[in-house]
Nucleic acid binder design. Sequence first.
DNA 1: TTATAATATCTCGACTTCAAGATTATTATA
DNA 2: TATAATAATCTTGAAGTCGAGATATTATAA
Lengths: 146, 146
Amino acid sequence: MENDSVSQSLKLFIVLSRAYKAINEHVNKVIQASGLNPTEFAVLELLYHKGDQPMQQIGGKILLASGSITYVVDKLEQKGMLVRIACPNDRRVTFAQITDKGKAFIEEVFPEHAQQIHSLMSSLSDSEKQEAIDLLKKLGLPAGKF
Amino acid sequence: MENDSVSQSLKLFIVLSRAYKAINEHVNKVIQASGLNPTEFAVLELLYHKGDQPMQQIGGKILLASGSITYVVDKLEQKGMLVRIACPNDRRVTFAQITDKGKAFIEEVFPEHAQQIHSLMSSLSDSEKQEAIDLLKKLGLPAGKF
DNA sequence: TTATAATATCTCGACTTCAAGATTATTATA
DNA sequence: TATAATAATCTTGAAGTCGAGATATTATAA
């Protein structure tokens, strides 16, 4: 029946929200204990793993409004974790580039971060994780394009 | 290998975050178009579906600090969606109670809300949704208890 | 070429949230 | 009973986020 199908979708929405929030809450605590807030950490990790990024792109990847990017990048710059680099080709564009201090920070904190996530996920077996990954990809990819 | 297992957990964390954020972004837009913000909507829906609640309990269920509850309940009271009721047995406690206007609001907006979630989830079949529900429960319940 | 549109970043003001502490009420203990 | 501990709500100040608009640059079209 159509009605049951809708309430099943609602139920999935609820368990998805709960699982995300429960895990994220713990993850954020560890991040904040390191001295950065979750957004700052996300930006710095992006620069570490993907290299220099125009401010614009940071917003797209971390899902942050343009006004907020300026703010977060300011903070990280004040902390010496990144520097702004003017783009030589297009003077509208500014790149954010991680510093040595920023790299050292990520290299110190990231393994613990990864390990914590791993233990928060230990209630699923490897094959269950793979199933969950496949299902969530199938769920999230189309939703991102609406 | 242990290392692959950790990176699989990281991958699950990423797809979980993406799926949640992608869906939530759309859901929040519809809610905000109705004139409430997501937190206000969550509180009002709680009162509609679960009856009168002490302020304290609202915080526990919606995951909100006590200072924020006061603020949100103020807003909803100003909008005529709920009223504060003093508890006759324990004068420390204040109940929040949804008004007729609040009920009418939820009855108008909720079906559209549910339908939107349903269509955001249409990339999964009913049986895949059930698998996802089971896996996310197994993942989220223990994480909530850490 | 010049005018117009699109793009990137930043500024500013408003809103929401939290954390810490204050206030008031209740319960437990001496 | 008096005192202390606990509990629920509210107040305040700080931080983070967004949206709208400002500014500067680049791309496009007449």
